[in-house]
Structure formats: C-alpha cells, structure tokens
Amino acid sequence: MLGFSRTQSVALAVLVLVVIAAPFLLYPIVVMQVMCYAIFAMGTNLLMGSVGLLSLGQAAYFGLGGYVAGYLVQSVGLTPELGIIAGGAAGALLGTGFGWLAIRRQDIYFAMVTLALAQIVYFAAVQATGFTGGENGIQGIARGDLFGHLPLKSDHAMYVVVAVIFLAGVVFVHRIVNSPFGQVVKAVRDNEPRMISLGYRTDAYKGMIFVLAALFAGVAGATKAMVMGIVTLSDVGATTSGLVVLMVLLGGIGTIFGPIVGAAIVVAMQYYLAPFGAWVIVIQGAIFMVCVLVFRRGIIGEVAFRLRTPL
C-alpha cells in the first residue's frame, strides 16, 4: 500500500488504529502533542537518518513555525489551516537560508553551526516582543474555524485535523525516503566522494533534506501552536532542539516509525515525571543513557533489526 512494505503496512495500520482509539483512552490534548512532536521528530530524522547530519538547532524552525502561525491567526485573523501552511513555509524558508550556511560543514562543525544559528533565532525571539510577545510568548490563541467554517474549539475537532496532518506526514516521509531523490540521498550517505565523481552535486541534495526537515519542524510548531493556543520561548530554545534529537535516538534513527515512538515516550515522561520538578531532566537523562546502552539502534530500530525488515 502506497509503496509500504508488508511489515510497514501492518505497522501503519496499527498506527492508524492507535490514532483512532487514543482520544477515547487518553487526554486528546496529550495525544495531539505527541503527534506534533512526532512530525517534528520525523523531519529531524530525515537529517540524522538519511544524510547522517546531527542538527542541534531544529527548534529554530519549530519555534518560528509556531510564532508565525500564532501571530497570523491571532493578530491578522487568518484561518488555522492558513496559519499552519504559513508556519511550514516560514520554517522551510529559514531552513533554506540556514541550510545553505550549514551544509558545507561536516560532523561536529555542522552541529555547532546549526546550534549557533538557532541561538540567533532565540535571541531575536526574545527581542522581537511585538511579534513573539517576548518572555510572555503568544498566549490565548483562539483556534478559529477550519476553512472559515468548521469550528475547532472542541478538542475532538482539533484532534481530527492534527491526526490527518500527522498521518499525511508519515506517508510523506516514507515517500521521500523511497523516491528517486531518496535513492540519491541514500547513496550520498553511503559514499559521498563516489557520488561526486559520478557528477552529483551532493551539497544540493543535503540542502534539500535540510529544507524538508525545516518544513516538517515548521508545520509541527504551527500545529502545536493551534493545539495549545500558546507559543513560548521554550519552543524556540535549545532544550527543545535537544529533546527532538532525543526522540529520534530513542525511537530509532533512520526508521519511519521510530521518531513517533520516541515522541510518545518523551512527551509521556514529561507528563508523568512532572511532579518531580527539576529532576525531570536528570531522570530523562538516565532513561536516555540506559536506552542508548541497551538499544543502540533505538526501540523501533531494534525491532526492525530483529525482524530483518525496514520499519
């Protein structure tokens, strides 16, 4: 189905069932948050998994997407779907510029450049109070009516919108990986000098992946802004950049379903560990270390390895 392998189709079917059942068993708002972070993590995984680039600044695109959507919906009065589209576009646009700067660097230098660029965005967000609300953030964003007609005030209505975006994101990521473009990217990851010697301008392909990752981040941030009705500095901060990397590593780098599982675990930890206050970070760090030591491939990566099939 849609080019998914048999095991992947089963996994996708299970995922759809979980998405349908979840709002009846759990707080819809929490599940929506998981889906938003999952979209964010799937994009980040494109960078980490398919071209092996570790970005430490993905929150820049996530936060910008949130601010743009929040601002346009609240202050300009755009409908929520336009806000989300604009948020994604803003993320992709920023990713085009930053990607162009970062992609020429390798390994740790790439990570440092992405981190530095994201810090610039963070400080800009602190300063541009007219747009971001500074320390207060943008608060009380009303979800408005989808296409100007369908009210999203109820969590269940909003849930359907988020679920559709999320599932479309899963199919889209799979398609990217399994496209002619995806083949080239895989080969670049495998042996970049050889690809250059065959006449491929490899930086352009890495740049395109960077833009796609930023697009996912922008859409994720914008959708989350609509869900929660609030965008704050933490959405654009370094902790969020770190969390999304954690989600990808926990779930399984280079897998389709891993980032989703990673997002669910990290969001769940934040809810259940909330009573522990500042200890959350320490506990998260410990769980992360155990996971990395026990499942080096991540949870879904480990399952895929055992089943000898891509997931």
Binding site: G3, R175, I176, N178, S179, P180, F181, G182, Q183, V184, L198, G199, Y200, A204, Y205, M208, L212
Partner: peptide, 16 residues
Amino acid sequence: QRDRGGSFDFWRSSDS
C-alpha cells in the same frame, strides 16, 4: 539516473 537531470523529485515513487 543522473541523466534525468537533478533527482530532486522527492514526491515521486522510486518505481519510476
């Protein structure tokens, strides 16, 4: 596949 020009079509299936 290099003769396709750039392979930037991430929306198309690799069946092509």
